[in-house]
Design a protein around this nucleic acid. Sequence first.
RNA 1: ACGUCUGACCCGAC
Length: 277
Amino acid sequence: VCTYTSVLKGLCSLGRIADAKKLIELMRRCGCPPNSVAYNILIDALCKNGNFDEVDSILKESESKGWKPNAISYHIYINGLCKAGKLEDAYRQLEQRFDVGWDVSFRSYNIVMSSFCKIGRCLMVLKLFSDMLKKGIDADTRTYNIVVHSLCKAGKLRKAKCMVHSRGFSVNVVTYNTLINGYYRIGNYLEVEHLYHRMKSEKIKPDIFTYTILIVMFCSQGRVSMAKYCFDESIRKGLLPDLVVYSALINGCFKNGELHLGLEVLDRMLGQGLIPN
RNA sequence: ACGUCUGACCCGAC
């Protein structure tokens, strides 16, 4: 079975789906019935190809073909639907499948929620979140972060902040970055600095994302020297600047007429071996 | 075998 499955994987990665399906049939006939691993590979390939109807029927016919879809099968399917923008279908699957195990459920919920968040349907995220809780599915920090992001996007910063600071809410650096970015976007710079200090007092170390937001903010206020200070601090803290931070700072320098500084930073970036895009 | 959260710019659509 393993050998056949490897071949199957190869065929799928080459996009030879018709051959993959033939191989599955061959396996069934030659005494090496494909298991869920094999079917999941095929399902993944079909999803990437947009053949969702076929995935649906493979799952429906699974019992008659002697295999049982597992948590991952549905995760692949739901993930594929989301990536293809078929969020309503993904949502429907989620409703129908939440009983296959909490592990897949919360991961799959995260994918669907974050997809809705990306297209700005924040209310839907909140609905899914409350569905999860009602069903007794455990949320993880990423789930919370998606909810916080949605609240920020919807302009409900007050609510987002309350949530983050409420008891039993597990936060990490991403949570803070999300909230800080939310306050930056509505122009509440005081709150940004406040949160920045608060995260440090909670022993959550700012990362490159944090510093990027601060740099962008200071540049947008014309406070290039503060932006540079943040940049230097990030390096002092042992963070390696990436293309995004450099772009943010260089862009800010030039927009504010600090040509020398901009070129200096660009030089540093090139010296670090980063290729401008 | 799925591997889900946050940052700059650019581009496209409206």
